[in-house]
């Protein structure tokens, strides 16, 4: 379908999402479970959770850019209904 993602990139993505899960659940979240300093007026812990959410969006965007570049290099625009 699409050129395969390099193993290093796979590991990096898996590591990022594992870190995301760890950062917003017990015990990771206990480390940042405080109100001060307020970030944009929000309690620190709330801003922390929101920051991971935004970071995940950016990571996926970066993944997509690289995947697109690979598809482009292999002469496939990835947009055809059949996917190839």
């Amino acid at each position: 379908m699409t050129p395969r993602m390099p193993t290093g990139e796979r590991l990096a993505i898996a590591a990022f999402f594992a870190a995301y899960v760890a950062a917003v659940t017990w015990p990771g979240l206990t480390l940042v479970n405080r109100v001060h300093p307020l970030v944009l007026g929000l309690p620190f812990v709330m801003a922390w959770i929101a920051a991971w959410l935004v970071a995940a969006g950016l990571v996926l965007w970066g993944v997509d850019r690289r995947a697109r570049a690979r598809r482009h290099a292999s002469g496939d625009d990835g947009a055809a209904p059949a996917g190839r």
């Binding site: 995301y20 309690p43 709330m46 959770i49 929101a50 997509d64 209904p81 059949a82």
Partner: peptide, 29 residues
């Protein structure tokens, strides 16, 4: 702060769909 759990899971739940979604769609087509 119990409500923050709602803020935490959405993107975590959606992200795998970046890979799963197109696979599902392809088999469906």
């Amino acid at each position: 702060a119990a409500a923050f759990y709602i803020l935490s899971y959405g993107v975590l739940g959606m992200a795998p769909w970046y890979w799963l979604g197109p696979r599902v769609a392809e088999v469906g087509r």
